[in-house]
Design a protein around this nucleic acid. Structure first.
Lengths: 213, 213
DNA sequence: CCTACCGATCGGTAGG
DNA sequence: CCTACCGATCGGTAGG
C-alpha cells in the first residue's frame, strides 16, 4: 500500500528530546482523547485522566487551566490534524488538475488522518454536541472553517462543469463529511484501510452505486 | 408535498383519553429526549427532566426505575420509530419492484421519521457511545437489527444485478446510514424537506454526483 | 507535581 | 407525586 499524498507523518508529537513537561502534556492529551471518545465529556473525570496518565487528580492543573481547556485542546486537534493533512494533500496536486481528482485526494487524506488520529477525531465528533455552550461556540467556528474547505472543493467542481445537473452542493458537502466520519463507527481496521475506504466512498458519491443501464 | 409512502402518522403518542399517567410518561420522555439530545446523557440530570416536565426530582421514579431505564426507553424509541416507518414503506411497495426503487422508498421513510422524531433519533445517535456499558450492549443489538435491514435491501439490489461491479456492499450500507443520519446536524428545516433530502442523497449515492462524460 | 480539602451536584430512597 | 435526605463523586484550589 503506497501513500498517495505528499502529507508527512502524523501530528505534533514531541520528540524524546523535548522537555519533560511537553511530553507529559502530550501523554495527558492522548489519554484524555481516548477517554473522552469512549465515555463522553461529562462522564470522563479529571481523576480518570490523571490516573490513566499516572498522576494525582490535582496535578492536571499544572498543565491545563480547566477541564474545559483540556477538552477543547483535544477537540480542536481532532479537527486540526485532519485539516492540515487535507490542505497539504490539496496543495500537492498540480495546478489544473480535474477538480474531481482533487476531491478524491482530499478524501484519501481525510480518511488517513481521521483514522490515524482516531481518538482525537472521534472525541471531537462524539463530544461536540454535549460540551459547554461557550466552548461549543468556539468549536463551531473551527468546524465551519473545515466544512467550508469541502464547500470550496465542490464549488470548484461545479464551476468546471464536473457535477451532474441538479446536484445540491450543500447536501453533497455534508453527505461526504457524514459518510466519511461515520467510518469511525464501523470500520474494521484489519479489513479496511483508510485508502481503500476513501476509494469506495468516492466511488459511491461521485460515480454512483447503481449499475449503468 | 405529497406523502409518498403508506406509513401512517408518527409514534405511540397517547390520546387525550388515555390515562393521565400514560400522558405524563410521554411528556417525561419528550423532555428527556430533547435534553439528552442537547446536553448528552451524563450532563442531563433527572432534576433537569423533572423540572422541565413540571414535577419534583424524585417523582420521576414513579414512572421509571432509573435514569438508565428512562434513557434506554428514549433511545430504543429513537430507533424503533424510524424502523417501523421504513418497514411499512418497504411493505407498501408492490412485489417485483426494482430493488433500487425500494431503497429510495426506504430512504424517504427513514428521512421522514428521523426528522419527525428528531429528538428521539438524535438522542439515540448522540448518546449511544457514552451510555453505561450494559445499556450500550443492549442498544447495539437494536441498532444491528436496523442496520441489517439496510444490508438486506442492498444485497437484494446486488443479487438483481442493480449495483455497479466492485461496490463494497458493507461500505455502501454505512455510507447511506452515515449520510442520512448526519442530516440531523445540518438540515435547515425551512429549506430542506425530508423528502427532498432523501431524493438528493439517493441521487448522490446511486447515480453519483459526477457528470457523465 | 502531591496532599488535603471545599462546595456543589447527582442518582436514588424512605416515608408519606 | 412530594419532602427530606444520604452517600458518592466531581471540578477546582491552597499550600507546599
Amino acid at each position: 500500500m503506497v501513500r498517495k499524498t505528499a502529507a508527512r507523518r502524523p501530528p505534533p508529537r514531541p520528540a524524546d528530546s523535548a522537555p519533560l513537561h511537553e511530553r507529559t502534556r502530550r501523554t495527558i492529551l492522548d489519554h484524555a482523547a481516548r477517554l473522552f471518545r469512549a465515555r463522553g465529556y461529562a462522564s470522563t473525570s479529571l481523576r480518570d485522566i490523571a490516573t490513566a496518565t499516572g498522576m494525582k487528580a490535582g496535578s492536571i492543573y499544572y498543565h491545563f487551566d480547566s477541564k474545559e481547556a483540556l477538552a477543547e485542546t483535544v477537540m480542536v486537534q481532532g479537527i486540526a490534524l485532519v485539516e492540515e493533512r487535507v490542505r497539504s494533500a490539496i496543495a500537492a496536486v498540480p495546478e489544473g488538475t480535474d477538480p474531481l481528482v482533487v476531491i478524491k485526494a482530499a478524501m484519501t487524506a481525510h480518511m488517513q488522518a481521521l483514522h490515524e488520529s482516531g481518538d482525537y477525531a472521534s472525541a471531537n465528533i462524539r463530544c461536540y454536541s454535549h460540551v459547554p455552550d461557550d466552548m461549543k461556540k468556539r468549536l463551531r467556528k473551527v468546524r465551519a472553517t473545515y466544512d467550508d474547505l469541502w464547500g470550496d472543493l465542490i464549488e470548484a467542481a461545479a464551476r468546471a462543469g464536473r457535477l451532474a445537473p441538479g446536484i445540491d452542493t450543500r447536501a453533497l458537502r455534508y453527505a461526504l463529511i457524514g459518510m466519511m466520519n461515520w467510518t469511525l463507527e464501523w470500520r474494521r481496521p484489519a479489513d479496511d484501510s483508510p485508502d481503500a475506504l476513501a476509494g469506495q466512498l468516492y466511488r459511491v458519491a461521485f460515480e454512483g452505486a447503481a449499475r449503468d443501464e
